[in-house]
Amino acid sequence: MLIIVLIGGILMIAQYFLNIPFLNSLYKKILDWSIVISIFALVIAIRSLLARQFKAIRERTEHIVLPLTTIVSFSAVVIIGLIWGVGEGGFVDTVYKKFLVPMQAAIFSLLAFYIASASYRAFRAKNFSSIVLLAAASIVIIGRIPLGDALADMTTVTLKSGPFALIDFPRWAEWILNVPNVGIKRAFAFGITIGIVFTSLKVIFGIERGYLK
């Protein structure tokens, strides 16, 4: 197994850096194969979803209606969709538009309430760092709403070089995002990428074998 990983990995690294026709056609073949293989990986995902529901039924950890709801709704969508298709106006399309989409949006919209109550309870200007954080957050919060634009319009004075807004939250927010934010995010991107590259190398050379367990 480690041999498959090692050879596959090294050939694909070489393909990117060298232009060898054999490697290029192999690369194309592997891409075709990967697409087909990955279809079957969903077996694992579905297994873990259903196994959890059946376990809950067996061990009675919650009311039996709950896991049954998941199993029944899951099977109904799959079976009906496979027989009658997912096209406009069909059962799956209706369930998708009238149920799935608004429900997902509704569950996520709960986060708006939580962030409001968290900003009341958690954001304290306790020390220098948190003051900096709060200041940057406030600038972005005001700078991204029309109020920021309106304040800038109201405080615009005409200088020799042209109009200049004294209180210009949108521009300050843009500066924060474009200068210090970019510096930090760039540093993070380096870190993450180096992490990805080293993990990939560890996998290829068989140092990281967690997936074999």
């Binding site: 197994m1 480690l2 498959i4 990983v5 090692l6 050879i7 596959g8 990995g9 090294i10 050939l11 694909m12 690294i13 393909q15 990117y16 850096f17 690369y27 592997i30 194969w33 990967s34 293989i37 990955s38 079957f40 990986a41 991107a189 380096f190 993450i192 990428t193 180096i194 990805i196 590259v197 993990t199 990939s200 190398l201 996998v203 290829i204 997936y211 074999l212």
Partner: peptide
Amino acid sequence: KYPLAFLLGTGAGMEIGPRIETSI
């Protein structure tokens, strides 16, 4: 584990070059 090894190995190999170029 065999198909997984195939996906992981080739995937990891394909990742390295373009990632370094894009994000570093």
